[in-house]
């Protein structure tokens, strides 16, 4: 693990530009082809400024590094299967360990994401992003995920954005909620979970419960959750056997609504803890 000095408590933020990234950030960057290059160039160049090793995956960052011969220590990962997050993560972790040995402050990853899952398979896509988010949280690396809007369905991108704690670009104020790693099998949720984002929330929580029977959700930053959001949470807990979700830090209105909605019973595998 890198030296994590300067990594504070993770929280959801909208970034005006990539200049504002901090250690441990996992940023969603929805780009239009015309306005992407300058941002990528600046992000890569900042690697030298901050003493970060730059790891580039995909053409956008590659062009930025090669064309402008930026004065930074960069590694371009030309992976055989960029869609395979596990392969990508293994490579990035190797570079991270090397960066520690080489005395860098951190690694800053610029990963261009390509649509690989079948339309509607949001859960799989979100599971991959959650792995990346866990990596950023654990290692203190900066991970910027680039999504070319022309290549993605808008609704899929809305889902994907929900599992990035940070976002930059024109629509950085959305979505309504964000879910991100706050430790081993622990996920923080920020914002509002309502009927408009309940499907994304359901997919995100399902993805989080895939690998472990008990998942903790920190609700400290959840403003409110409506009936559709609560149903999405319960449904996610029930979709696999023997799963349990413990919600911690919920505010008074969330706990009141949970009770009123009839979910505060032993046969619901979601516990609304204090």
């Amino acid at each position: 693990m890198l030296a994590l000095e300067g990594v504070g408590v993770r929280s959801a933020r909208a970034l005006a530009t990539l200049d504002e990234v901090e250690l441990g950030d996992h940023v969603c960057w929805r780009v239009d082809p015309g306005d992407a290059f300058a941002g990528a160039r600046s992000y890569v160049a900042d690697g030298a400024l901050y003493g970060d090793k730059v790891v580039v995956i995909g053409s956008l960052g590659t062009v930025a590094v090669r064309r402008d011969r930026l004065p930074t220590t960069s590694v371009i990962l030309d992976l055989p299967d960029r869609a395979d997050t596990d392969v990508m993560l293994a490579a990035v972790r190797r570079e991270t360990r090397a960066a520690v040995r080489e005395g860098f402050r951190s690694v800053r990853v610029l990963a261009e994401r390509i649509p690989v899952t079948a339309p509607g398979d949001a859960e799989e896509l979100l599971a991959r992003e959650l792995k990346l988010d866990e990596f950023a949280a654990e290692s203190g690396a900066i991970v910027v995920c680039v999504f070319r809007t022309a290549q993605w369905e808008a609704s899929t991108l809305e889902h994907v954005a929900c599992v990035h704690p940070q976002e930059t670009g024109k629509r950085a104020a959305r979505p309504a909620f964000r879910m991100f790693s706050t430790g081993t099998d622990s996920w923080g949720v920020d914002g509002v979970v309502d009927s408009e984002c309940a499907t994304a929330f359901n997919a995100a929580v399902r993805a989080a419960t895939r690998r472990t029977p008990t998942v903790k959700l920190r609700f400290d930053a959840v403003e409110m959750i409506d009936a559709a959001g609560m149903h999405a949470l319960v449904d996610a807990a029930r979709h696999l056997p023997e799963r349990r979700i413990v919600v911690e830090g919920a505010n008074e209105i969330v706990r009141l609504c949970w009770d009123l909605a009839g979910y505060a019973t032993a046969d619901v595998p979601v516990v609304m803890a204090a």
Binding site: D194, S195, E223, M224, D226, N251, E252, I253, L256, C257
Partner: peptide
């Protein structure tokens, strides 16, 4: 806070 939920 209650009204926000109800209106939603």
């Amino acid at each position: 806070a209650k009204l926000a939920v109800a209106v939603t």
